[in-house]
Amino acid sequence: MEKPQLIKNGKRLDGRSFDQLRPIKIVAGVVKNATGSAYLEWGANKIYAAVYGPTEALPKHTANPKQAVIKCRYSMAPFSSLEEHGRSGANRRATEISKVTKEVFENAIMIEKFPNSEIDIYIEVLQSDGGTRAAGITAAGVALADSGIPARDIPFAVSAGKANGEIILDLDKLEDNYSDADMPVAIYPNLGKVGLLQMDGSLTKEEFDKAIGMIKESGREISKIQKAAISEMYE
């Protein structure tokens, strides 16, 4: 299929500038049964995240006497896409995203405080429009803060990529499908460290620098929205 023109007159198809995020809205505490939770709308993405725990690690052989075990499930609803009905359940893509997301939170949560326990993180994508793993991590960050489980930092995530030779922030589905590079990144803003980095396509070193710069800069806005969702819980 021929690539559509993703950038016209210095703007993207949805009118955004290169370094502009889609609108983000987060509400915390939406899943009553969970220890912490959040509902996030990021452009057309609609995602629920919930955190349960710490509880006793089960089955017992998974328990670690030194620290909590983090379990993570990222999953997409079969009705989440504008295209055909998807198959629910585990697939290789979801398995990988679950793993890298788990690793982001293993580092964020003070797991050493909870030996022999487990903390479960669930991310359910009910509607998808590109960038769901980053949006899922951002939502799970708020769910974690809402849970009150001690954490070193609340990560945010967003992706940057390349389309028609330009570095752009926060690719939507269409841009993602036809971009020349896509790079989702999670950052712990207070620690100033990177917790997730994936990339495919092609980027020069200069383009990487530009992309990661955009991601870091956009974190101010994303973190602000995350914090606002938490403080609204106490108003």
Binding site: K32, A44, F79, L82, E84, H85, L126
Partner: peptide, 26 residues
């Protein structure tokens, strides 16, 4: 109409029970 990518969708809240239904047609 809460999930417009799906052909049909609805959120039902019955007390604290929340169920979302999505309809896809292929």
């Amino acid at each position: 109409g809460i999930m417009p990518h799906a052909e049909g969708s609805a959120l039902v809240e019955l007390g604290n029970t929340r169920v979302i239904a999505g309809v896809k047609i292929d």
